[in-house]
């Protein structure tokens, strides 16, 4: 419990800054929706002028763009990019904190098992993601309430499936933290990884290739696809399997690896 409290206190500092940025971005984008609705015909006419590749690449669907969930699916890709980077960073920093501070000898010589440490750190990360996603959900439904915008079931699917993407990135971050001998540049590494997968998503959308879409990780639960067709059961299975696999390898390495001086 003391490790959980300690980690939560340190992690809270990271979360606060990112949370403000993500929520402001989301609230700003969502607040444009009523204006889009007022000028929907002009907007649709403009979108029809775009090359189909651009529409596909950015996940723009003219038919669903008019709905709140369709609009959310479009803008949420950018929010998800931020959430992906935050998730990788959280995993790397939490599990790799002792590597970052070179304080492994201090913590690992205390009467606490490595299993207990890993679980406490992961629990802090998961709690952080849960809080972030709860607040995002509150903002999404809050904006719809304030502007009296009708909602549909697709919004819940987008938000829940987004959490699964974040979990994949979080455990990917924990795995990187245990595999890398030295951690120094967490922010730039996490940003590069987050953007790397995001560009894969755009390319996969352009190619309309399902396998490639899955490789981009974001594409496992592509917001545009989830909004139109719901969560694909195969992708859900792959996503959950990936979370378990990444978490399992990360845990195994954490409890068995030699600590660097």
């Amino acid at each position: 419990m003391n490790t959980f409290r300690h980690e939560w206190r340190l992690h809270g500092r990271l979360l606060r800054g990112w949370l403000i940025a993500i929520l402001l971005t989301l609230a700003l984008f969502l607040s444009f929706y009523p204006a889009f609705q007022d000028g929907l015909d002009d907007m649709v006419a403009m979108m029809e002028g775009f090359p189909p590749e651009v529409l596909r690449g950015f996940g723009l669907d003219i038919d669903s763009f008019a709905t709140y969930s369709g609009y959310l699916a479009y803008i949420y890709v950018f929010v998800q990019l931020l959430l992906g980077i935050l998730s990788i960073m959280s995993g790397m920093i939490l599990v790799g904190r002792e590597k970052l501070n070179r304080s492994s000898d201090f913590l690992f010589s205390k009467p606490v098992s490595r299993r207990g440490l890993w679980l406490a750190k992961v629990a802090v990360g998961l709690l952080g993601l849960l809080i972030v996603n709860s607040l995002i959900t509150a903002v999404v439904y809050g904006v719809s309430g304030v502007f009296s915008i009708p909602t549909d079931g697709a919004i819940g699917s987008i938000l829940v499936s987004s959490l699964l993407v974040q979990l994949i990135f979080f455990f990917l971050g924990t795995l990187i933290a245990v595999l890398k001998r030295r951690l120094q540049t967490v922010t730039s590494s996490a940003t590069a990884i987050g953007f790397g997968f995001y560009f894969l998503l755009i390319v996969a959308r352009l190619l309309e290739d399902d396998q490639f879409l899955r490789l981009s990780l974001y594409g496992l639960f592509d917001t545009a696809q989830v909004q139109r067709q719901g969560v694909d059961p195969t992708n859900l299975t792959i996503g959950l399997g990936l979370i378990i696999l990444l978490a399992g390898i990360s845990y195994r390495r954490y409890v068995t690896q030699d600590l660097e001086v």
Binding site: R97, N101, S103, D105, F106, S109, P111, V261
Partner: peptide
């Protein structure tokens, strides 16, 4: 570990 006190050669903390 409950009964051991350890001072590493290279001290680094948070």
């Amino acid at each position: 570990a409950k009964r051991v006190g350890y001072l590493p050669s290279e001290v680094a903390y948070y």
